[in-house]
């Protein structure tokens, strides 16, 4: 398995280089280093000299991908792409174009993102599975039909509506929790209750429908019939036999998103003033801070690769028949 993991990591290198090139090209198609300088220097009294100074200070005064005027290997190394990309592979994110250390910012923002995303995932998973099992229990009945209609309605509503509605009812009218904000340690609990509840509720419709499908596939299998024939109740059958066997797709679905939890949720964090990573990237795009955009896209792709790898490994853990080679 170790050789498999190493091989997968080696495969990841060209993928990450590709992602890096793509981000670089897409970013610089839209923004030239001059545009970036203007954005950072503000709108007043910006002269070409000031722009040139900024570019020189931030390393944007060399060609983008190929330096024809340089000698030998410097044709490649004396370019914005090379100089800004090498550090990434060593997880040295450098400083943002506005001068802050990106690594320090990411470290600081990852925890609040996780504080909201992890409870949302766990609580959502438990509730989705329980409701899905209940629905499966009543399969073929009007209760199931009603349940599915409710699920479709829940899925059809925008998450923004849940956020605004939740804030209005729970925080403004009933005044149970602060409407937004964040604090450190235990004091953070009162701030994350509402976003977690809204996160769980907004994912309920799709989650229940997905798990219901998984369980329905399982309940038709022979071993379930055998279990019933042994005289087990429907509840016992569902919880003791169907649930463990449906764990493979559930687990793989969960494991793949685990690393991405660090990346946070853009809308949720923005509405609840959670100082996470969700809004970090979009703020950087708006302010044309290429250093942050590049770092966040790179981090996102690394986490995604890790997520896929963990999924493969988790297969072997939940299903002994699967072997990685």
């Amino acid at each position: 398995m170790i050789s498999y993991i190493i091989r997968r990591f080696l495969y990841a290198i060209p993928i990450l280089i590709g992602v890096n090139i793509l981000t670089f090209v897409l970013f610089f198609i839209i923004n030239s280093p001059d545009d970036m300088a203007r954005m950072q220097l503000g709108q007043k009294h910006v002269t070409q000299q000031a722009i040139d100074n900024w570019k020189q200070q931030h390393g944007y005064d060399v060609p983008l991908l190929w330096n024809a005027k340089a000698q030998a290997e410097e044709k490649l190394t004396k370019t914005i792409f090379y100089q800004k990309s090498v550090g990434l592979f060593l997880f040295r994110f450098g400083t943002s174009d506005s001068g802050r250390n990106i690594g320090a910012d990411i470290k600081e923002r990852a925890l609040p993102s996780l504080a909201v995303a992890l409870p949302t995932l766990i609580l959502g998973l438990i509730i989705d599975i329980c409701v899905a099992l209940m629905v499966v229990l009543f399969r073929g009945s009007k209760l199931e039909l009603g349940g599915m209609v409710v699920c479709v309605i829940l899925m059809s509503v925008s998450s923004l509506f849940y956020i605004i509605g939740g804030q209005f009812v729970i925080a403004k009218v009933l005044r149970w929790v602060p409407i937004s904000g964040y604090d450190e340690g235990f004091a953070a609990v009162k701030f994350i209750i509402l976003p977690v509840l809204i996160g769980v509720f907004s994912g309920l419709g799709s989650g229940v429908r997905w798990y219901r499908t998984l369980f329905l596939e399982e309940v038709e299998k022979d071993y379930v019939r055998t279990a019933r024939a042994k005289g087990l109740t429907e509840t016992q059958t569902l919880f003791r036999h169907v649930l463990p066997n449906a764990m493979i797709p559930i687990l793989t679905g969960v494991v793949v998103v685990l690393p991405m939890l660090f990346m946070g949720s853009l809308i949720m964090e923005s509405f609840f003033s959670i100082p996470g990573l969700g809004s970090y990237t979009i703020d950087a795009i708006n302010s044309q801070d290429f250093a942050i955009v590049r770092a966040m896209v790179f981090l996102g792709s690394v986490l995604y690769v890790i997520g896929l790898l963990l999924t493969d490994i988790s297969y072997t853990l939940v299903d002994p028949r699967v072997r990685l080679s």
């Binding site: 605004i164 209005f168 403004k172 409407i179 937004s180 923005s270 509405f271 003033s273 100082p275």
Partner: peptide, 18 residues
């Protein structure tokens, strides 16, 4: 100074006296 990006929570907090 609290970071508050959205107008809805900002306005609600003002009306609540926060």
């Amino acid at each position: 100074f609290m970071l508050e990006k959205e107008t809805i929570p900002y306005w609600t907090k003002f009306l609540q006296g926060y």
